[in-house]
Computed example of a mutant assay.
Amino acid sequence: MPEQTYQYYLNQKTVAAHYLELGNVSKALEHFINAYQTPFGIEDLDLMLELAFLYDEVDEQKNAIQLFYDMIKLDPEFPTSYYGLATIYDDNEDYEKAIYYYKKTIELDPNYEAAHFFLANIYDELGENEKAIYHYEKTIEIEPAYYYAYINLGCIYEAEDKNLKAYHYFYRAHQVDPADYMALFNLGVACRKLGQIKESIRYYRKSLNSNPEYSFTYLNLAILYKEVFEDYQESIALYTEGIKYNPEVSVLYYNRACCYALLHENEKALEDIKFSTQLSPSLIEYMKTDDELSDIRQMPEYQAIYNE
């Protein structure tokens, strides 16, 4: 009877939602499929959307794509169907299709901030900065607290050496989330490029307090102390702290080696060079022309290892 079928459909949706809350995706998927296979399920856009995103989560993308296309046939004006397709094509780096479906989403719902953001991401990835900026700005216009839109805008302007604009957007991100290390790190970068050395140090230090495991903060701050203050001991201390958290990051050892070499602690420098080039053999060619390591290259042990 239709009433029994409808009750079964409702029960399957309820059970699926319960398993989803428990984090049991496979059981949730099983019961959503049961609900979808009823006459009521094949007309339930919300159910189809949930099922499609679950298919995508468990790497059954063909099923997810088919569901999104079925949703479009059922309701061509439902923007999330197009958004779902766009995200799958985006993940697979099929940017032409992803762009088409993100644009279709925005055509149906101009205030769909996630579509603007991820469309901007693609343009950013493709180096189409003006289009990326436009859609990041639209994202912020729709959702003023969209943290990563500010971060990504700042990164575009910093790469273009428009450092005041970069600072502005990094600071806006910092206002959205004052504790997040990435905004603090990028503020450090922008301030260094603007010649605001004390502010740069302050932001880098705050970033390390927020996330002591991010290797690039140690790298940038240590380079600052080395290049601006010629404080090689402080640089070495920062590299050493960074290595404690990131023992596989070769550039920390390499740059510490350069500081040891500048202090004429050649044995320590050579040990770091050996370790860094074991981790990243590509550093060997760079090392052979690095002026700071010229004394190290004269050491017999170096020459025995690197055939010079």
Rank of each mutant, 00 (worst) to 15 (best):
L22Q: 14
A52I: 15
L263F: 13
A145I: 11
I296A: 10
A173T: 15
A173W: 14
Y146S: 05
P79I: 01
Y82D: 14
A166Y: 00
E285A: 05
Y204A: 06
F68I: 14
T240K: 03
H31M: 10
S294P: 05
F275T: 06
E43G: 05
L20E: 12
F118H: 01
D46P: 02
G154C: 15
T240L: 04
Y69Q: 12
E292D: 12
K131Q: 09
A86H: 07
Y245P: 02
L270I: 08
P79K: 02
I223Y: 10
N129Y: 08
L270C: 09
N121M: 08
A159E: 09
N211D: 15
E267V: 00
Y232V: 11
L238N: 02
K103H: 12
Y225G: 12
H116Y: 06
A115D: 03
Y302I: 11
L194S: 04
I142Q: 11
E137R: 13
A115H: 05
N24Y: 03
Q298D: 15
T80Q: 01
Y55C: 02
L262P: 03
E267C: 01
P281L: 03
K62W: 09
L49V: 09
Y100V: 14
K165N: 06
D46C: 04
D177T: 04
L262W: 00
I296K: 13
G84I: 15
Q298R: 15
P212H: 13
L293H: 08
E265P: 07
A114C: 07
Y181G: 13
E93Y: 03
E265S: 13
I236E: 08
I305F: 14
I156R: 06
